[in-house]
Design a protein around this nucleic acid. Structure first.
Lengths: 399, 399
DNA sequence: CAAAATAAATTTAGGTACTAAAATTATAGA
DNA sequence: TCTATAATTTTAGTACCTAAATTTATTTTG
């Protein structure tokens, strides 16, 4: 949905405030392209709502001293519940600055259906909030992240691997159970939101995020906004077909998905194929991975080929993405630094050779370590973005 | 660049006016989501500038009769110069409704450099405008379309096959030579603009356009706006890599480009490879194509395999696009109806099998015959969009 | 044929949200 | 204490919207 000018300005002010903190009103005006006269009422409103703190600083020279503005960490709290790669629930309570003030994990016990999953989310959220120092009424909203296809506008889960009951109205169900507003999005989108809201300063407005985990995911920001498809569904990079003939079979039912070559599960699965081992489940894959990496480093030829191909195909896929969408930056996240070492030569080689000449070297591609906290931060950002946009009527001061 | 609310509203009103023509102010208010009171001054301004005509209609029932509004064809004229698939210049003068009132082709004689090309554009434009019934001062702007990588915001040509001198400031050069404002864009973007502005009613706001010609191109509209990359460059679908290993070599220097399998030149080239013929140039390809199609229809097995693969790979590529971007509609254009017959079974089969289940059948994919006039229409739309947005101060009426 | 009914379009009153410029405020230094 | 100065706020003016009232142009009705 298109933001109105004033919503857009408010959001810009807040993003700049967060990024340049501590910042004076005058600086904020320059950063956001508005005049000082426009900043005053926006900051007044935010301060009145407790989202922004003012801090007097001794002036270094003459003239009226600047008033430093900061996000008020205690301005609002968000409960974030996600299912990161560990496979367990991570429930965190975060403040306005994206810092976790309370954090607990809970086991995910039942993976039958989305309805059961929603019930478990409700239970663990209620438990963790009760265990936290905060009262449930101090929580402004709940943000949920799922490794699933989600319509983030409606809160409907379209599809989630191994869970039956697609097209399930997850957000509404949870909201009814908890009695707090609930927002939900796909895990990759959460990481992208975290990057945009709590990452670099000034905020990066055009980037693509790619994550190499057991699966392979992607998300994209353009013009300072998360890109969502016409049905609210995010980029399914992992199930992009990279091999058109005789490709490896994917759990999605298709063949030749990028995910079957350039993901952690792909590497372990192919190793098992080599050795004739049975392919383990998610947990088994994770425990096998160090061995696979060690063997590769030790010079195992067939394994090295598998890693070469992993890097190469990822490079081709990202080159394709650059050729199609011309992003400004690409950030490839991984929790396995050793994997990055093993694939980066092949990756950058393929990236270079498959990007069209005029676009070559335009998009900056960097590897970065995944911070698992960013799932929660993204959930916080999702909720805060809504909080920021909503405009309360300014209580008329007794002028 | 982000449009302001009022620019956005004006544009919306005009798109709806064009699409629903003839339309009353009251209808326009409903279509564009504004109130009647907002429509009045917008239409007043457009009428004052001669872009809109009012037409009294006898009222069918009681009440004040509606005033029908139409685009005034004579409100502004645009000179469009493009290089469609024929390889020659097509220079047309179009009215506000996208109708060509004058049309001539001129040979493209010199393909050395972009500088020479720009000079030729200037020459043919000046000649054709002189030959037309219109004075050059009646032309509001010139719109240029090129089969090239273009930054449509700056008018710089980044790269154009067979023409040397990339990063050439085409629009500025031409503007200096002609003395009229010049806008320039990539051919695929022009087709997409034509589709959005002069196509279906109500205007389609989310679609991807794909063209099967000698090359293979793509362009995308999202949220009612042409999607451009961070460097103003459009989707290079043709050079997406579809085969990662031992792919066919492409003139771009890469291997495995979709264009080397699913384009007219790919079909002819592969036929020549089969028969040991030398691969002809652009014109030769076109003349050979009917034979290739006829032989395939007659049951030539190896050729049929080539066509099967053409359809299949295109299906995979578009499925990948759907999985990544979730477009609402996809329109595949071709000037060869027989080609469509030959590939559509394989295409739809591959499309279906490679689209993720929740997205399957969500995006409507249709084949359509390419109307070569749409290059010019797109050039007109590009210019008109600018014209529409610009706001002249309303001459204060003697109230 | 005048009056009533009706639908389209415009005007009016009110509000929001900006800008540019003036005024105010809070400090340091003379 | 007075002056200079920089940050911020206020003021006056403008653009552009909405909702509601009004005007306009027509047909239908009595």
């Amino acid at each position: 949905m298109r933001l109105s000018d004033s919503e857009y300005h408010r959001l810009t002010v807040l993003k700049n405030l967060r990024a340049a903190e501590p910042v004076s009103r005058t600086e904020l005006a320059q950063l956001s392209g508005l005049t000082g006269g426009a900043i005053t009422p926006i900051v007044r409103d935010l301060a009145a709502r407790g989202l922004v703190l003012e801090e007097k600083v001794p002036s270094p020279n003459r003239g009226r001293p600047r008033v430093n503005l900061r996000l008020n960490p205690a301005g609002a709290y968000v409960a974030a519940a996600t299912l990161p790669s560990t496979g367990d629930f991570l429930v965190e309570i975060l403040d306005l600055t994206g810092r976790a003030i309370f954090s607990q994990t809970r086991p995910l016990t039942d993976t039958r259906s989305l309805a059961v999953l929603a019930a478990q989310f409700a239970t663990v959220l209620a438990e963790v909030i009760a265990a936290s120092p905060l009262d449930i009424h101090a929580i402004a909203q709940v943000g949920i992240g799922l490794p699933a296809m989600v319509d983030n506008r409606t809160g409907v889960v379209e599809y989630m691997a191994t869970f039956s009951g697609g097209r399930y109205d997850f957000a509404a169900t949870l909201q009814a159970l908890l009695g707090i507003p609930v927002r939900i999005d796909n895990n990759m989108n959460l990481l992208a939101r975290a990057e945009h809201w709590f990452g670099a300063s000034p905020p990066v407005d055009d980037f693509t995020l790619i994550l190499i985990e057991l699966g392979l995911g992607g998300a994209r920001y353009q013009n300072g906004q998360l890109v969502v498809g016409s049905h609210g569904i995010e980029a399914e990079l992992g199930h992009t077909k990279i091999v058109p003939e005789d490709g490896r079979q994917c759990h999605c039912g298709g063949f030749g998905c990028l995910q079957t070559y350039s993901s952690l599960s792909a590497l372990v699965t192919q190793y098992c194929d080599l050795t004739g081992q049975a392919v383990p489940g998610h947990m088994g894959m994770r425990s096998l991975l160090p061995d696979v990496i060690a063997l590769t480093k030790a010079g195992h030829n067939s394994l090295q080929d598998i890693f070469h191909r992993c890097g190469k195909y990822l490079g081709i896929a990202i080159a394709n993405h650059i050729n199609m969408q011309d992003p400004e930056r690409i950030i490839v996240l991984s929790s396995e630094p050793e994997l990055v070492d093993l694939i980066s030569d092949d990756f950058f080689d393929a990236l270079h050779h498959n990007t069209l000449e005029p676009l070559r070297n335009l998009a900056r591609v960097t590897f970065r370590h995944l911070d698992e906290q960013n799932y929660s931060r993204g959930a916080a950002a999702m909720v805060l973005e809504q909080l920021y946009q909503s405009r309360t009527t300014i209580a008329s001061a007794d002028a």
